[in-house]
Amino acid sequence: MAVMDFAKYKEINDQRLNYREMEDANVVSYYRNTGCGDGYRIYLKVNDTGLVEDASYTTTGCGFGIVALAMATEYAKGKSMADLKALTPGTLETLFEFPERRKNYPQSAVAALHKAVEDWETGGSVPPEKRVTKAKVLELLKTQGHLRGADLSSVMLEKENFDGVDFSGAKMNNAFLQNTSFVGANFSGANLKASFFNGADLTGANFQEADLRFTKLAGAKIEGANFKDALYDIGTRVDQKQIGIFDQMKKAGKDLYLNSEGLE
């Protein structure tokens, strides 16, 4: 059995190799690992000849997920779509060999890259006019003083401070919101399906009637938060000590998040 290269593992995680939003990408693809619930985004810049000039990713996953996606995007650079379609986990592991119990990570990274190729071929990539960057959100907040009803689908607002901000009625499905402060923020009626609040500070936040189906709240601070009549389903994840919030909420069926509408 091969021994994992811990030095390389640490170096990739410390440097966050290829971890970034790519402003000029012409492919932005979203993939959800249904096994652990982690979210992946693949960004590709493909030239007129069909070769990948640049590749990057973002993820809510752990260190193994970061390494797998770093290797997948590193492999993608300079390759054709046909090359990417032919990529296998075994080929990816020639760049970094994963421990036996972590083989699911290169498998998921390859699946995410294949999804990006499919989106390129079918036009399923997130169109430029619907891409919401953190810079755009901060400018909008500065201009109008709130984010009520804003279309913030798939936005990344990691490690920011949005204490007291009004997000009521906003569209925030598939948003990456982990490790961000939302103390006293208002999310009432917001669409938060399949979003990630891992490690976020939600103290005193208002989620009344918000849609929290398939949303991850692991490690979040939720003291004093209001979840009255918010929607949840079997994909809504919280820490064991926090399961009491479900008593305030309304349960919905899994079919509501497994179809394309539920993860829009």
Rank of each mutant, 00 (worst) to 15 (best):
D163M: 09
A185N: 07
F187Y: 01
R148F: 07
E158Y: 14
F207W: 00
F214K: 11
E209G: 08
K221V: 12
G189H: 06
G199M: 01
K221S: 15
D166T: 07
E160C: 14
T215F: 01
I234W: 09
K159S: 14
K136D: 15
Q240L: 13
A175R: 00
G224A: 10
N226I: 00
G164R: 09
A135G: 08
K134T: 12
E158A: 14
Q144I: 11
L141A: 07
N174G: 08
E139R: 12
E209N: 13
M156A: 13
K136H: 12
S195E: 02
F176L: 12
Q248L: 03
G169H: 05
G244Q: 11
L141F: 03
F162G: 00
K221F: 13
N173L: 02
Y232Q: 00
V165M: 02
L202N: 02
L212Y: 01
L217T: 08
Y232H: 08
N206D: 14
K216S: 15
F176N: 10
L202E: 05
I243Q: 14
G235E: 03
A205H: 03
V132F: 05
D201T: 12
A210Q: 03
E139P: 10
D239R: 01
G169L: 02
G199C: 07
N173M: 01
K251C: 12
